[in-house]
Amino acid sequence: MENILYAILVLGVMGAVFGAVLAFAAKVFHVEQDPRIAEVRSALAGANCGGCGFPGCDAYAQAVVLEGAAPNLCSPGGSKSAEKICEIMCLDNSAEAKYVAFVPCSGSSEKAKKLFEYEGPADCLAAMRFGNKGPKLCQFSCIGLGNCVNACMFGAMNIVNGVAEVDREKCVACMACAEACPKGIIKKVPYEQKVLVGCRSTDKGAAKRKVCDASCIACMKCQRECPHEAIVVENNIAVIDYDKCTGCGTCAKVCPRSIIHPQKIYVQD
């Protein structure tokens, strides 16, 4: 009995002394820091998972406040955390250039030719196991089974007619979809960009014509007609130079395959 009491007493005293030392040290070594760091920290999920790419929630909170890291990197916190962080941080920097994800494929179920009908589990990776490119003949096509939809934490991805589509208003350009896409076709584009090319196949024009009705056949029409020399056909695919493009929409009108899509843009006042 005496032994136990002794042990409790000694270790209790040790703990108390160490605690006092630490409390004292915390006062002595106190470092002033931006109060917003603590606010951002409390808005995060606090799982310390490292999914944001920073070593732990504290480091991420600090990076958000001091280095301007993106507010939407906390996966466990999801859109709630992102919104809260925006409230704390973004009020003054909403003018920054906004980006959104874009799926450069227009090969919907009717337009893209199929190699076979896929009836397995709804997972792009699983479908990729067949022929290494999935059910659609074009190797650059969106498989349309929704790995990106599952990856999106903001509910911004939808499968429409067998092709993934981005809800530009909900998208925060975290590019989780791009990582989840086994074909790696999802790109980051400026939100303000008014026209986008809905195809990214670099196969020869004739080959593309065979596999998909909504493919860029590299006819060069857009390149010739563009009044600003902003669109060029490179590697059998039309590419828009976002700096030169004024969004006049000429290319979209002349495209015989209708795969240059005008985008809806809501300008904030």
Partner: peptide, 13 residues
């Protein structure tokens, strides 16, 4: 305790 102390010390100095 030691690690905590080292951490505080490094953070400050």
């Amino acid at each position: 305790v030691l690690v905590q102390l080292v951490e505080m010390f490094l953070k400050k100095s």
